[in-house]
Simulated scan of single mutants.
Amino acid sequence: MIKMLNLITLEHGSGGKKMQSLIHELFLRHFDNEQLNSQEDQARIPFDTLIAQGDRLAFTTDSFVIDPIFFPGGNIGKLAVCGTVNDLAVGGAIPKYLSVGFILEEGLPIQDLEQIVIAMAQTAKEAGVTIVTGDTKVVAKGACDKIFINTSGIGVIPKPLQIGARQIKAGDKIIVNGTLGDHAVAILQARNELALSGSIKSDCAPLNLLTQPLLAQPGVHAMRDATRGGVAAVCNEIADMTKLGMLIKETALPLHPEVTAVSEILGLDPLLMANEGKAVIFVESAEADALLAHLRTLPYSDNAAIIGEVVDSVEGVFIESLYGARKKLLMPTGEQLPRIC
């Protein structure tokens, strides 16, 4: 713990002694690695370690403004690492390096910041990535809400791997690696705005722990992580890109009982709810059952299920009920739950 003030002040972003103390006693201590410890203005990454693992770089960036910053199953720091790792992982990349930018509100308890940094360090270690560079800014009280985080990531795509929406074809099965909507409901309960109670936790998790071994199996055509907008957004986006249709079986959806209950009470649709540890996987039909069995042996995939298929008989995305009735599942037009990530 930093042996100074208990709260972040504007001086912690001034570039002076307090900022140096914050960097050394908090960030360098918990993110400890050779590149970061060199304290240059840029990370210096050797090419040979990247070339040995693939022939293309994947690069992504994301910002996190979730409210509340601590929630069942994680905090904004864990979320920031998982979110960027997952964006790389579903593209087939092996995540390698992250940058982290903090915007801190004056008055943020340093103890809270340390908990967030510890969670980031632990999650990065679990995912096998290194936080190699970063930046910290402090703004006056009221200019942001406690803490905002930006993370960017670099990964390596192995040769000759080719996955993406353009590889999807009619007949492909659609698989998810577990229960849907857990993150959204956990955040809704944590906000205490609607007197909801429950024990559900966010599904926040680094998906490369399942995507990398999964891609060693035949049949995977594409993957996406179902964050804001949920499975509905992913399927509609890909249907629009490919001009293929998708048919989702309502009875096949893996749902936690608490998610079902909250959805019914509030009129929410789990297919539109945000997730932070769920991949939507498009798989060759002949390989789907074997791949699902393998997926269930991997982390964060106990409740993996085939939820539908890609078709060329309809345009857009449809959900089919137990009795065979079909309803079009539209792209979300608004935000069911703002500041969910």
Rank of each mutant, 00 (worst) to 15 (best):
A226P: 10
D145A: 09
T251P: 02
I157Q: 05
D289W: 00
N33E: 07
V129G: 10
E264C: 02
A195G: 09
T9W: 12
E105D: 01
R191C: 11
H256L: 02
V310S: 03
I248H: 02
A293R: 01
M223K: 00
C144W: 04
Y323R: 09
E250K: 13
K327D: 12
C144A: 08
I238Y: 09
D41C: 11
A290T: 14
P338S: 05
L330M: 14
T333I: 09
M241A: 15
P299D: 11
G324M: 01
L98I: 11
S99G: 09
F31C: 10
P332H: 00
D302S: 15
L10Q: 02
P206A: 02
A205N: 07
A239G: 07
K18E: 15
M19A: 05
V139F: 05
G155L: 05
I149F: 03
I187L: 15
K173Y: 01
G171D: 04
H256T: 03
V220P: 02
E237G: 15
A124D: 04
C204Y: 01
V90N: 06
E276Q: 15
V310H: 00
V81P: 06
D112S: 14
L36V: 02
N37Q: 13
S63G: 10
L188H: 04
A119I: 06
D172F: 09
D48L: 11
L10E: 08
N236T: 03
I281S: 00
V259I: 13
L247Y: 02
Y300M: 11
L161V: 13
N86W: 10
G134M: 04
G15Q: 05
L79A: 07
P257F: 00
L22D: 06
Q53S: 03
M246P: 01
P218I: 08
S38N: 13
M120N: 01
M120R: 12
G91F: 03
P109R: 09
G92Y: 09
E114D: 11
P72T: 08
L291F: 03
K18Q: 14
S38D: 12
V90H: 10
L330G: 13
M1I: 00
V283T: 04
I76E: 04
T9I: 04
E250M: 11
L108T: 04
Q336V: 15
N208L: 06
I154S: 07
T251H: 11
M120E: 12
R44Q: 10
L104G: 11
C235G: 00
G230V: 03
L98M: 06
C204V: 14
L57F: 15
L207P: 00
F70H: 03
I306C: 10
P270E: 03
S199I: 12
I265N: 08
S285A: 12
P206R: 00
I265K: 13
G13M: 12
P338F: 01
R29E: 13
D112T: 07
